[in-house]
């Protein structure tokens, strides 16, 4: 049940290997020059699954990689301590041990656990010694409309409670009103409040109206020092999609080309099938490169994805289609 080796509790965090994005002054010329042609982006997104295919051992390896990139998440009003503990146990042993043994990756864990502030303490305790970081959603998640000083304070308290990653939500209105300065200032304040904890900026792309807005908001958040940019809270009617992902990772690529800093990417919400995960990984590999296929630069925000991957892995090993009840629930 317990991971067999003790890892440092930062082994999956960006600062372990990459210099952290320090941000840069807001460059409005750059922001306003950004274009995003929706039809063309959709065409590219639609063909990626036809252009890239991974089979057999490669598929199994890629699915294991996907597990290592999951922020195993519970963000429900009815979360309890025991529910969170159960999820943490799943994060530490995401797949039946004998399956992992067969595949030669016995120490596999998920990338992180993602919870609300009140559950940080429980999660940190449950994960103690596992090396799996706890991420907390913050800043009045999911709407982000509580008083600003409370949002900043929420971050501070979550960091104090032991969260190593903070998933903040931006004020969508700043994007919808084209108030980039306000978005920049807000993001910068959140980043400062995070201190050493890493900050993931949730853009709530389903509420930004256009892909162009997604591209511009991505850039502004990176300029303000985001360590990760993330699509969604999972609570919008439209969450992570391939077109949105394409826009955000192209923004990440441009930011890297211009500044030399790698910013991470986290699609969240709606990715529930193993096949979808493979498409995302191929998209990241092709558009950003292999370096982004590590947990310090890529995460899936997902809750039901793991179950589908487990079934696929068992099928890979046995040649027989699997059943959900054969795998421990999260």
């Amino acid at each position: 049940m317990q991971a067999t080796t003790i890892k440092t509790d930062t082994h999956q965090l960006p600062q372990a290997v990459e210099p952290r994005n320090p941000g840069m002054p807001l460059d409005l010329d750059w922001v306003s020059s950004v274009q995003a042609n929706t039809s063309a982006i959709e065409r590219r997104a639609k063909t990626i699954s036809g252009r890239r295919s991974v089979k057999k051992d490669y598929q199994a390896a890629w699915l294991l990689k996907a597990i290592s990139l999951i922020d195993l998440t519970t963000l429900s009003g009815d979360d309890t301590e025991d529910r969170v503990k159960r999820l943490c146990a799943k994060a530490m042993q995401p797949v039946r041990a004998e399956l992992l043994e067969t595949l030669g990756v016995p120490e596999l864990t998920t990338g992180a656990i993602c919870v609300y502030h009140d559950m940080i303490d429980t999660a940190v305790t449950a994960l103690s010694g596992s090396g799996i970081p706890v991420a907390a959603v913050s800043t009045g998640f999911p709407a982000g409309l509580s008083p600003f000083h409370l949002r900043v304070e929420e971050i501070r308290q979550s960091v104090a409670a032991g969260a190593k990653e903070i998933d903040i939500v931006i004020s969508r209105r700043h994007v919808l009103q084209g108030n980039w300065q306000a978005l920049y200032d807000e993001m910068k304040a959140f980043r400062e409040a995070c201190g050493d904890a890493h900050v993931k900026a949730i853009l709530a792309t389903g509420e930004l109206g256009t892909l162009r807005n997604v591209a511009r908001a991505s850039l502004v958040c990176m300029m303000a020092g985001a360590d990760f940019i993330k699509t969604s809270t999972g609570k919008e009617s439209v969450n992570a999609t391939l077109p949105v992902s394409l826009v955000m990772i192209r923004a990440i690529r441009d930011f890297y080309d211009r500044t030399g800093y790698r910013v991470g990417y986290k699609p969240a919400g709606g990715i529930s099938k193993a096949k979808d995960a493979l498409v995302y990984l191929a998209l990241i590999k092709d558009e950003l490169g292999d370096r982004w296929l590590q947990p310090d630069l890529f995460r899936f925000g997902a809750s039901s994805l793991l179950g589908d991957i487990e079934r696929q892995l068992e099928h890979h090993i046995t040649g027989k289609y699997s059943a959900g009840y054969r795998h421990a629930m999260g």
Binding site: V54, K56, D57, Y58, A61, K65, L103, V105, A282, D290
Partner: peptide
Amino acid sequence: VKEIFDTMEYG
């Protein structure tokens, strides 16, 4: 599988 896990090649 472990090696592919590390290299993430397409195959």
